[in-house]
């Protein structure tokens, strides 16, 4: 049974370089790096949540109502039950376990959701691209779509771009999409 709040240490917010303390409470979520400013998310913003293996450890991904995707990485595998319980008690949200594809294949199906492009390999997500990180996309050739990512320190909704925090920054991805492509389709919007 969850108490007034649940706290997790060593959590990275949106690929932050510094870890911080993450807290789930009825009013919402908070994150604070040592000596840094507190980030908060009110409970009404929390639409759904997913649990996956990420880079530092396990990730709680929050799909918000108006603020895009929030990623909290660095959870231990054993934190799942505690995080799930807290999400359910405070936000009436089911922390859904999402296993990612690790086959190492480069073919699958690109699908669009509200805030992300999912690339699914053998019916499991291999990676996601938050739309907020895309700076441009165009039809680069016959059946080829190029997606460019911002590498500057730009912000969206007051949030720092995730890519700018990375050591190795993703600049561009190109996709091959079979079939006939109508003129103008895939152009930047």
């Amino acid at each position: 049974m969850a108490g007034d709040y649940e706290t997790f240490e060593g959590i990275y917010l949106d690929l932050s370089r510094q870890p911080g303390k993450c807290r789930f409470a009825a009013s919402g979520m908070g994150w604070k790096p040592s000596g840094g400013d507190t980030w908060t998310l009110t409970n009404t913003e929390i639409s759904s949540a997913q649990w996956s293996r990420a880079a530092k450890g396990y990730e709680v991904k929050i799909i918000t109502r108006t603020l895009g995707i929030v990623q909290l990485d660095g959870f231990e595998q054993d934190d799942f039950d505690r995080a799930k319980e807290a999400m359910k008690a405070y936000y009436k949200v089911n922390l859904e376990h999402r296993e990612h594809a690790l086959k190492g294949w480069n073919w699958g199906k690109a699908e669009f959701s509200k805030s992300e492009l999912h690339f699914n390999v053998a019916n499991k997500p291999a990676f996601e691209i938050p739309f907020s990180e895309v700076s441009n996309s165009n039809l680069a050739g016959k059946n080829e779509i190029a997606v460019e990512f911002s590498t500057g320190d730009g912000t969206t909704n007051g949030k720092k771009k995730k890519n700018s925090a990375a050591v190795d920054q993703l600049v561009e991805m190109r996709f091959y999409v079979p079939g006939t492509v109508k003129k103008g389709e895939g152009e930047d919007g």
Partner: peptide, 23 residues
Amino acid sequence: PFEDPNAHFLRSLTYRSTDNNRI
């Protein structure tokens, strides 16, 4: 031979880094 030629394929990835020697 492509197992599923009708699938979408990731064709290229470009990264940049200031860690030149490691890249």
